[in-house]
Design a binder for these strands. Structure first.
Lengths: 141, 141
DNA sequence: AATGATACTTGTATTATGCAAGTTATTGAT
DNA sequence: ATCAATAACTTGCATAATACAAGTATCATT
């Protein structure tokens, strides 16, 4: 999967998106990074959806290669790697928001609270700005 | 796949979305229906991404079961079935738009023209209204 | 009644994912 | 300085999803 060939080159943005992120796990990893603020390998492993370790390793490598995530050593513990979102990842926020709005409308068992949803819907750009600010402060600090 | 069990029930909208539409083909079929206005089985088969016929049949059945597409007989030709979007499908439009904006920003070979992109970005709600109007007129006519 | 069109179904090969166990490098404690 | 524990993976094999090729059922036209 990491060594995938880009064969669907049809020019359609939808096909491009799915070629890069249209598997069962990539978007869940990005949700962990962008929305839930996870950083470490073991944190992704512990996600309640239950990704297996070989698939996780493969997807992290792929997302790094695509410059959607960047991998750095944790200066406080050299055993740990920190995965953080690039601009290309943060640019997915509007799509995530629309995905959330759709899913929480149609999923009877959604865990999204009314307040959270109102926050998304009411002022998307301020939510996006908040998330971006969080990552900017950690990367420049 | 049609007889799938819903095992990931984590409550996360992202997981819900991927459970329903997170395979390689469902979103491409919905793009064909919603954005490109395709209706017939053979039209989906002829999409340039090249879906195989057994997978197409499976996904159409799944999307119908999920009430994302509805299937009706073509009154002019009883051999043909017409697949059309439900409200649940049309509610995906905002997500498609954000997906298109992201993908055309990062795909060097995007087929999306500057004008089309400006139309998406400039006034999303009017684009959405136009698409919806198209389907309303055909369903009531 | 025969022919072609349309929408599928079936069988099998290939690829992707899931699961369990093992490996390497670093760290913190003794 | 040594050793057990931690973190991030890798490897091998089973299962599931997708791809490819061929076949079938139904309706429409002649």
């Amino acid at each position: 999967m990491v060594d995938m060939k880009y064969k669907t080159r049809t020019g359609c943005p939808c096909a491009y998106f799915l070629e890069l992120l249209g598997d069962k796990w990539s978007l869940l990893i990005l949700r962990d990074v962008i929305i839930l603020g996870k950083q470490y390998y073991h944190e992704f492993l512990e996600s309640e959806e239950g990704i297996s370790t070989n698939i996780l390793a493969d997807r992290l490598a792929k997302l790094e290669k695509l410059k959607i995530l960047k991998k750095t050593r944790d200066p406080n513990n050299l055993r740990k790697n920190i995965y953080s979102p690039t601009e290309k990842a943060l640019d997915l926020l509007p799509m995530f928001i629309e995905m959330f709005i759709w899913a929480s409308k149609y999923d009877l068992y959604t865990a999204v609270t009314r307040e959270h949803l109102d926050r998304f819907r009411g002022d998307k750009s301020s939510y996006i700005a908040d998330v971006r600010a969080k990552f900017n402060s950690t990367t420049t600090r």
